[in-house]
Design a binder for these strands. Structure first.
Lengths: 222, 222
DNA sequence: CATAAACCATAGAAAGTTTGAGGTTTTTAT
DNA sequence: ATAAAAACCTCAAACTTTCTATGGTTTATG
């Protein structure tokens, strides 16, 4: 009997117990599934580092948000994913996220290229089981809402450079146009130009920023 | 009892009978599944056009390649998909393709944005059933190899414009550099520049075109 | 080994971006 | 209702990138 080691990292202890309960009862070939857990960035990081020189985890489940919202988030699941890929490239990584916002999904798909991405509202015992099996045998596994975001992006002809993306992102979180220059290395008038250009790309000429943001959301950019 | 109408278009009659056999035996809520078939571009087009003013198909399964390879392909499944989206936007479209080459998948995902994409070697009765159900209730459905191609593309930071893509595509089908200018509206020296640039993007500086093509394939561009 | 194709370097032309300075219109707060 | 702030617009000069033509070298192929 082989052992399948899973590490689940989530800051909500009860959520994680739920995962552990489901996962350890999965019947999967002749695997014995063992779930290890951690509920802070630090303890998760430590377990991953320890695993490098002992047994390696087969699958690492990472919550994107490892701190209560509103709190400072010095480090999040994405950073931990990047680190894990470096330390233990043989471990499969899957993200679990409460929000299905495209910006985050796109970013994680590029920075970590995880073997799975599960939007939490898509998860139930059945899909979780399917996800684990797919991740182990034939990755990737993307849950339904994640696929929705991916579909939007793939069906898209518009390509934006980093600065355009940053402008859209900052506008979407409510940054004022006049403050944008603090975050983006461009003059105010260039930022205005780019905003105009973006609005014409997304077909929201002469409309306000909200219209632009909504159009960009619909197309999967934020 | 509701009726779920499926139209399958594939130039191999036997393949299509197989699909029909499997599909009509699927147990799916209280649907009665009826499969209509066509095995040429023209007859498929006709059935789609007729459906506009009578019953509309719920799902249209399209083979990408509707003519024997090597023959001239004046029209293919992709064109038919584009047409269908215009004529009957309420019908779901799924592609079936023997090749899982990224160039084709990427192109179809942009031109048609189908509700499903199945690579034929991924299809068996079980996945076909799962695919149909997902396409009807909660699209999209991408089969395993299709997901592989999509993953490559999404995890990629490199973005290419139309001309770069065309250069890569033509090189991949064996077009000589000196003939490229017939297909791409650029001067020979610009094409050389872009090829140099592409090679540096893909980390194949000072290597030959084959190395470039292989690297671009690995990253999901062709 | 001769020829065609591929590749490289350079420099001027063309196209696209950025920037600052001037302004008008819209939004926001009181 | 009104003053102030922010957003928006236009234009032209500086700057950057890309394109193109030319002339040359290297590499592949019959």
């Amino acid at each position: 009997m082989k052992t399948l080691r899973i590490l689940a990292i989530d800051d909500h202890e009860m959520t994680m117990l739920g995962y552990k309960f489901i996962l350890e009862r999965i019947v999967f070939d002749d695997y014995n599934i063992i779930v290890d857990t951690a509920n802070t960035y630090e303890s998760g990081k430590q377990k991953i580092e320890e695993s490098v020189h002992s047994f390696k985890y087969d699958v690492i489940l990472l919550d994107v948000q490892l701190y209560p919202p509103n709190e400072e988030q010095p480090q999040n699941g994405e950073d931990l994913g990047v680190l894990t890929r470096k330390l233990v490239p043989e471990s499969k990584i899957a993200f679990m996220s409460s929000f299905s916002d495209n910006f985050r999904i796109n970013s994680i798909l590029q920075s970590v290229d995880p073997d799975g991405y599960l939007v939490k509202t898509d998860i139930d015992p059945k899909t979780l089981e399917e996800a684990i099996k797919t991740i182990v045998t034939n990755p990737p596994y993307y849950s339904s809402k994640a696929l929705g975001a991916i579909r939007k992006k793939m069906s898209n002809k518009i390509t934006l450079d980093e600065k355009d993306k940053q402008i859209l992102y900052h506008l979407s979180i409510g940054t004022k146009t006049k403050d944008l220059e603090q975050y983006i290395k461009l003059s105010p008038s260039s930022i205005e130009n780019r905003k105009r250009h973006l609005k014409s790309l997304f077909g929201t000429e002469n409309k306000n920023d909200l219209a632009l943001i909504l159009a960009a959301k619909k197309r999967g950019f934020i």
